[in-house]
Amino acid sequence: MTPLVEMRDISIAFGGVKAVDHVSVDLHAGEVVGLLGHNGAGKSTLIKCLSGAYRADSGSILIEGKEVQIENPRDARAHNIETIYQTLALADNLDAASNLFLGRELTTPLGFVDDDRMEAETRRIMARLNPNFAKFKEPVKALSGGQRQSVAIARAVYFNARILIMDEPTAALGPQETKMVAELIQELKRQGLGIFLISHDIHDVMALCDRVSVMKNGRLVGTERVADVTDDEILAMIILGKNPERA
């Protein structure tokens, strides 16, 4: 089966420092692939080439076997790639609906922004994702970490993402909210989305992912099926850059 996404031989350097050095990863539909590594291992940088925030110096990106050019976030969206950033990338001064539709506003036939319709749509999707969500009028600054997270997720889900990139989705959340995000990831997986999950929390990854790709110093250490390895083996990959020994 052709993978949903293939990133082949990606390299990117910033002022002589190789942040990502010939890394290849892939992702299938209905699969969660974890990207693990220390801070500065290059996982966020790698994935930003897919979300359009950076351009790779070399290498290629294939979606369903076809090579694509992703030059900016708009290109990524055109390929149904949605990203939930660690910082959540929300405009704090705008309400949930304005954030959800930012860059893709619904408009009236005259071309004006249709706030009422966007609010109605936001209420509809929130009823599904987070039924407790009620602050539709307030700027998102007034929301809790979990509520903000659900706005960010709603944004990805509403526009029928097929490829979802989640950068540390639970970093700022309490236990209850973390559980909610975990359930949501399972749900999206069942719907056939492919999800890249960036994390440095190994427990998150072991619980949610099918495979993990481990990076260290900009290089790929290896990719393993979660079922085949132990926590300690993954830790060895992260810390020592050592692949598990096969019997």
Binding site: A53, A91, L94, L102, V113
Partner: peptide, 27 residues
Amino acid sequence: VIARRTRFGRYVFATGGNPDAAELSGV
């Protein structure tokens, strides 16, 4: 009307609220 009812106005406020978010949203 521009501030409240057009995309341009919405992007002005979004960029002021969080320039990175606006940029990543394709503004």
